[in-house]
Computed example of a mutant assay.
Amino acid sequence: MLDWGDVPSWALVVISLGALVLAALAARWAYAAFVTAAAAADRADEARREARERAQATLVAAWPISERETFQKAIERGVVGAAIRNSSPMPVYNVEITYRDEGAAWSAIRRVHIVPPSDEPQIFAGFDEEAHIGTPDPSRFNKDGSIKLLPSAEMRVEICFNDVLGRRWRRDDNGVLDVAR
């Protein structure tokens, strides 16, 4: 057995300092591991919160009117329209449906205050405002100089709405959902 009385005092100091350095390194590594774990937990909490908030928005979709038999009259009249399905259990608010016909350099917006939950799509026809931005494709001009719009079923439709938490969402004309900026 080692008798500490036979070890020179400078050796005890070196051993003590070595033990202290190792303890400090171990504490630093433990702290770094703790910070990393805390950051991972925060990211996981944020992802769960985002998933909860996105849950309602993922159940809301819009598309251009295309079912000819059901909506023949609206299509024949040249009225643009869209179907919106809110399959979530809660209503969505301040809905904006944006129609686009890029070849005609035309867009329009229809505003709806509330779309309640429903398994069946609701039909919204017409628009509240329109804009002509850019130059239409020359093939889209009628003989009288007016612009020929695509049938409603061929237009691009985008939807923006607020969920029950007040968060604004946007589903683009390709169906991609994102938080509206």
Rank of each mutant, 00 (worst) to 15 (best):
L12R: 13
D45T: 13
L59W: 01
R68W: 08
V7E: 03
T36Q: 15
L165M: 11
V21E: 02
E129K: 15
N174I: 07
H113P: 15
W10H: 12
L17Q: 14
I123H: 05
A24W: 07
V92T: 02
R171V: 01
A44W: 04
M90K: 11
M1D: 08
V164A: 14
I109Q: 01
K73N: 10
V14I: 10
P89Y: 11
I65R: 15
S9C: 06
F124Q: 00
I114H: 00
V21P: 02
D119T: 13
P151Y: 11
R52A: 08
V60R: 02
V79L: 09
A40I: 05
Y31S: 14
E130V: 03
T98D: 01
R68V: 14
D163K: 09
D137P: 01
H113N: 15
R52Y: 09
E76V: 14
W4Q: 10
Y93F: 11
E102C: 09
G145R: 15
A108P: 00
P116M: 07
R181H: 10
L177G: 02
F161V: 00
E69P: 05
E50T: 14
V115Q: 02
A55F: 05
P64Q: 03
D137H: 03
E76I: 12
R85G: 03
I123V: 06
R77G: 02
L17P: 03
R43N: 09
V92W: 02
L149Y: 01
A74G: 12
A108C: 03
E50N: 12
A37M: 13
